[in-house]
Nucleic acid binder design. Structure first.
Length: 790
DNA sequence: GAACCCATCATTTTT
DNA sequence: TGATGGGTTC
């Protein structure tokens, strides 16, 4: 097998019986899986139809799909590559009737779960303070992951008052889902297991089909998934699991690290192959990673090594505060760019999403384009949820949650009181809300709303007829127009409404795309895709932007240059983990740290702040214990002062950012990382200019080309003025590069609309005079002002 | 039914 | 700091 090392080759060629591949970070895991599939088909004559590859995320599934298709060619499409949930959903669509369900079931996402849970708590008259929605959903999820029914849950937990109530909540929640013909994500797995146990011939059907099974990221499986895999593989036992116990970071989500640690006990005849050669990182980076993870106990014995070069030392910088840290990161980014680096090769990783704000503020000031991964999901947007709500309702009228969501959006005079009456009636009669609407004349107390309810029911029936005809795009457009949803947004004429309309257009595109590519496009299939394949475009790999994300999101990714910020005790490792009575909590944080470090290929910059604003208060954190676990000789500590003052970063620049701060000037955000006077032949300085026309984009959301959307982020007048004064010579550019010229109307992030009245070449840059509609004339340097032609 | 004020409370997240 | 939710008022 071409280009594989002996271990990798061993993993590929061992095809019969259970196999555990312990694949260290950067050891070529995906390569091994794809080559293994190729080997099965090409050398062993296995029918691609009999191969199943399971992953956790759609992204991983998509990636594997592409690589398998590329390496095998025709026939590869028969290999079933899927996420756990998509697989189970397919099984349930086909066989749910055997469990007494109907196949048009709705899949509830986190938000639907929340709504359902709130209703349950209201109904049981339980206080949300004592039984928090989030916590209850998590508790139920844990029960389901452990395959415990409400009764079993009650038996297994201590029968105190609270646990009995949680069991009641679980029971009621489940009842609600069932009467709505809905499943949550956990149900997909559990009910598939139920089905397999109850209907052995169905199980056998799939056992026969999936003679060779591979599971990626095995350390992330929960108990239910473990059982599911076990059942599927029970007949042929050709089960290959791939994972790395050191990268298990999803315990809070139910992942059970024991699944991988105990694989050999579960399958005593299992062969174990360790992939320990790392192809990703430099020796220095790997040494740091190994030093940190060595502090964990109970690991599988393995140690990563590499033939890669030593590389640069890993840096650690302690900054004065979080803003200084952000500025320092920017400064280092500029230094890298100057040396010919690319933004798409860089990532900033942090423990909590809240940390992104300070970074974003600074990046905007410095004109560094970035993409933020994670955060709000496209399908979590209100307008999208509303429209999807209509679709769900049309597909499954029993879906009360969706119905309540849309019944009065847009407003059609069916208020809370009416809805409440309907709900009472429905639960009394044991019918769905929608059926109650159809019988609204006999519902007590709805009197005046009857006509409106009739209209609503009629409208929904119209949608159902359209749906039956199978034209989904038509259905979608009908909903937009007949409900008046679109009209209402168009009438609003605000930026927000415009952005919502754009998102709705985006959803339309997704629907049309689904119709084009699906073999058999159905409403139920579309909704499944929407529920399970949410947020497909969460990361762009080939745009020249810096990437910002949490450490969790970074798993599976790699970047030449990685910044790991906020290396502070109680932030990372998180305070919650440290306070936890679970002794593994700190180790999980350490694994997270290991994951972060091993994302880096060439350069790794660790940093901490001495002072940080958290939850509205200033804290003075200690340097993370993980930093102390790294031997001194592996780290370069940038410009750390010995004299007791705050630490500074003076490593890369002669004019230090803190040079200003120390001399008493205020926070010079605009000065940090600013253009150094360019050496004449130093090309990369043009970056600023090329970026002028670029857009910022919050990932997972609509494309946002309007810098004003970002204007909520502080960019005070003070800063802008300082910029004008301090702007130095930039690179030689022509005015055209900025995309506007004298006479054009432009938009400024802070000052809004204005007219360009003058552009004066100035030390390679341009001084631009703009008369703003609201702020009058301002003069600023083009390379810094981030003006956009409108 | 919208607009406002106050209190509260803050990991990590894919499906 | 900020988002969110409940309660109040018009």
């Amino acid at each position: 097998m071409a280009g594989l090392n002996p271990r990798q080759e061993e993993a590929c060629s061992y095809t019969e019986g259970p196999l555990l591949i312990l694949a260290g970070a950067g050891s070529g895991k995906t390569r091994v899986i794809t080559h293994r599939i190729a080997h099965l088909i090409e050398d062993k004559g296995v029918n691609p139809f009999n191969i199943l590859a399971i992953t956790f995320t759609n992204k991983a599934a998509g990636e594997m799909r592409t690589r398998v298709d590329a390496i095998i060619g025709p026939g590869a499409e028969k290999v079933w590559v899927s996420t756990f949930h998509a697989l189970c959903s397919k099984v349930m669509r086909r066989f749910y009737e055997r469990l007494g369900g109907t196949k048009n079931f709705t899949i509830y996402d986190a938000d639907d779960q929340r709504s359902a849970m709130k209703e349950v708590l209201r109904q049981l008259n339980l206080d949300e303070k004592q039984y928090p929605v989030r916590g209850m959903i998590a508790a139920i999820s844990r029960a389901k992951e452990s395959l415990l029914s409400p009764d079993e849950f009650e038996d297994q937990t201590e029968g105190d008052f609270r646990n009995r109530n949680i069991a009641r909540i679980y029971r009621e929640y489940q009842k609600r889902l069932e009467s709505s013909n809905a499943m949550d994500f956990d149900d997909l797995i559990c009910k598939t297991i139920d089905l397999f146990l109850q209907e052995p011939e169905v199980l056998e059907l799939y056992q026969e089909r999936f003679r060779y099974i591979m599971v990626d990221e095995y350390q992330d499986t929960n108990h239910a998934q473990f059982i599911l895999v076990k059942l599927l593989a029970a007949k042929y036992r050709n089960l290959c699991v791939v994972g790395d116990d050191d990268q298990s970071i999803y315990k809070f989500r139910g992942a059970n690290i024991r699944n991988i640690l105990n694989f050999e006990e579960e399958y005593p005849d299992a062969k174990v192959v360790k992939l320990e050669q790392n192809y990703r990182s430099t020796k220095n980076i790997l040494d740091v990673a190994n030093a940190v993870i060595a502090n964990n106990s109970g690991r599988k014995d393995k140690s990563l090594w590499t033939r890669n070069e030593e590389g640069e030392k890993v840096h650690f910088t302690r900054y004065r505060d979080d803003r200084g840290e952000a500025a320092g990161v920017c400064k280092k980014i500029f230094a890298l760019l100057r040396k010919g680096g690319n933004l798409q090769d860089m990532a900033v990783l942090y423990r909590t999403n809240a940390q992104s704000r300070v970074l974003e503020e600074q990046l905007i000031r410095e004109n560094i384009p970035y993409q933020l991964v994670g955060g709000t999901n496209f399908y979590a947007r209100k307008e999208i949820r509303d429209l999807v709500g209509y679709l769900k309702c049309v597909a499954n009228t029993a879906d009360d949650i969706a119905l309540v969501r849309i019944i009065n959006y847009p407003r059609r005079g069916i208020g809370d009181t009416t809805v409440k009456k309907l709900k009472d009636f429905a639960s009394q009669q044991g019918i769905s809300l929608y059926d109650a609407i159809r019988d609204c004349e006999i519902v007590p107390g709805v009197g005046r709303a009857v006509g409106k309810l009739r209209d609503f029911a009629e409208m929904m029936e119209g949608f159902q007829r359209t749906a039956e005809r199978g034209d989904l795009t038509r259905l979608y457009l009908d909903i937009l127009s007949v409900t008046g949803y679109q009209r209402e947004l168009e009438a609003e004429r605000t930026d927000e409404a415009r952005s919502r309309l754009e998102n709705l257009q985006e959803l339309r595109n997704k629907i049309t795309e689904y119709e084009t590519k699906a073999e058999e496009a159905t409403l139920v299939g579309l909704l499944e895709e929407i529920s399970l394949v949410a947020d497909t475009d969460s990361l762009e790999e080939d745009s020249d932007r810096l990437t910002l994300m949490t450490l969790h999101s970074a798993k599976g990714l790699e970047y030449p240059d990685v910044f790991l910020v906020g290396m502070e005790d109680r932030l990372f490792p998180s305070g919650m983990a440290l306070d936890s009575d679970d002794p593994d909590a700190e180790e999980e944080e350490r694994r997270l740290c290991y994951v972060g470090i091993t994302r880096a290929e060439k350069r790794l910059y660790l940093s901490a702040a001495t002072q940080r604003m958290t939850n509205g208060t200033v804290i003075y954190p200690d340097v993370s214990r993980f930093i102390h676990e790294i031997p001194e000789n592996l780290l370069v500590k940038d410009g750390i002062q010995e004299d007791g003052g705050f630490y500074t970063d003076v490593s890369d620049f002669s004019d230090s950012y803190y040079g200003d701060s120390r001399s008493g000037s205020s926070y010079g955000g605009a000065r940090a990382g600013r253009f150094e006077a360019p050496k004449k032949d130093d090309t990369p300085d043009l970056y600023y200019d090329e970026w002028q026309g670029s857009t910022f984009q919050r990932k997972g959301g609509s494309k946002n080309t309007d810098p004003d959307m970002e204007a909520g982020i502080e960019n005070d007048k003070d800063t802008a003025d300082k910029r004008d004064l301090s702007a130095g010579p930039g690179a030689s550019v022509s005015a055209s590069i900025f995309g506007y010229t004298v006479g054009d109307h432009v938009k400024h992030i802070k000052f809004g609309r204005g007219l360009v009245t003058e552009m004066i070449p100035c030390g390679g840059d341009f001084e631009v005079a703009v008369t703003f509609d609201e702020f009058g004339e301002k003069r600023m340097f083009a390379s810094l002002a981030k003006l956009r032609k409108i």
